[in-house]
Amino acid sequence: MSDAAGIYARESTYLDRCVQVGIAGDRVLSVSFPGSLAAEADTEHPLLDRLFEYLEGAPDDFEDIELALTVPTDQRAVLEAVRNIPYGEQTSVERLTRRVPDFDPDADDDRDRVRTALDQNPIPILIPDHRVRDGPSAAPPKVEQKLRSLEGL
C-alpha cells in the first residue's frame, strides 16, 4: 500500500454511494460510504482499486491490509474476531461472542458489547461486519444488504 496519507474516494454504481477510505502511512483508519465525493478526496489509490474489484465480485479477504484501530480494547477483540470471518461465510452474534476471549455468549452484557463494536466499526468491508447476520453494521443498511448479496449471504 502507498505511504501517502489522506482521504481517497470513488463513486460506486453498485452501492449507489461513494466508498471513502482514510489512510495514514501504511494503515487504514476508516472506511465510509458518503453520498457524494469529498472535495479533498483523491480518486486514485491501490486500496480503492482492490475495493472496487471486490465490489465487482472478486473475492478478497483484505487480510494483508494494515489497520489502525483506535477503539477500546474490548471492541478491538470483537473486531479482530470479525476480521477472521471468511469471505462468503456468516456468523451470529452469539457465535461471534464465543470467539472473543473472556466474553460469555450467554451474558446479555457481552452480546451487547459485541453489538456495540459492530455498530461502531470504523472500517467496514475490511472488518466485514456485514457477515454477522443478526448484528448491526457500521455501513448504511442498503450498503450492508448489497455487501451481503455480493457474497451470497
Rank of each mutant, 00 (worst) to 15 (best):
H130K: 01
E89V: 04
V28P: 01
E80T: 09
L48I: 01
A107W: 01
Q90D: 14
L47D: 05
A38E: 10
S92L: 06
S36A: 14
T91V: 06
D109F: 14
A24W: 04
V100N: 05
V114S: 06
V19H: 02
R115G: 10
E56K: 03
E63V: 09
F52T: 02
T97F: 06
E44D: 12
E40C: 05
D106M: 13
E89A: 10
V78R: 00
A39R: 11
V78P: 01
T97W: 01
S36T: 15
E94I: 12
A58G: 09
V28S: 05
R111K: 09
E44L: 06
D110V: 10
T97C: 15
L67M: 10
N121V: 04
L48D: 02
P59L: 04
G88S: 08
D129E: 03
R98H: 14
A107T: 10
P128H: 07
L37F: 00
A58Q: 11
L55M: 04
N84Q: 15
H130R: 01
S30K: 02
R98C: 15
A81P: 04
P128Y: 04
I85M: 00
Y54W: 04
G35F: 03
V19F: 06
P86I: 05
Q120E: 14
P128F: 07
D60T: 01
R131W: 05
A117H: 03
L67P: 07
T70D: 15
V82F: 03
H45L: 00
D106Q: 14
D110Y: 05
C18S: 07
I123S: 03
G22W: 00
V114F: 04
V82T: 03
Q120T: 14
R111V: 13
D112W: 08
A68I: 02
R27D: 03
F103Q: 05
S92E: 01
Q75S: 15
D110R: 05
G25D: 08
D74Q: 14
D64C: 07
L29V: 10
F62Q: 03
L79T: 08
R76C: 13
D102I: 07
A81F: 02
D61H: 07
P86R: 13
F52C: 00
D104A: 09
D16E: 15
S36G: 13
I23Q: 01
E80Y: 07
L79I: 03
V93G: 12
P72N: 06
T91M: 06
E80V: 09
R115A: 08
V28D: 02
A24N: 12
F103R: 06
E63P: 05
G25H: 02
D64Y: 01
A68C: 11
E94P: 09
R98T: 15
D134L: 06
T116N: 12
E56F: 00
Q20T: 07
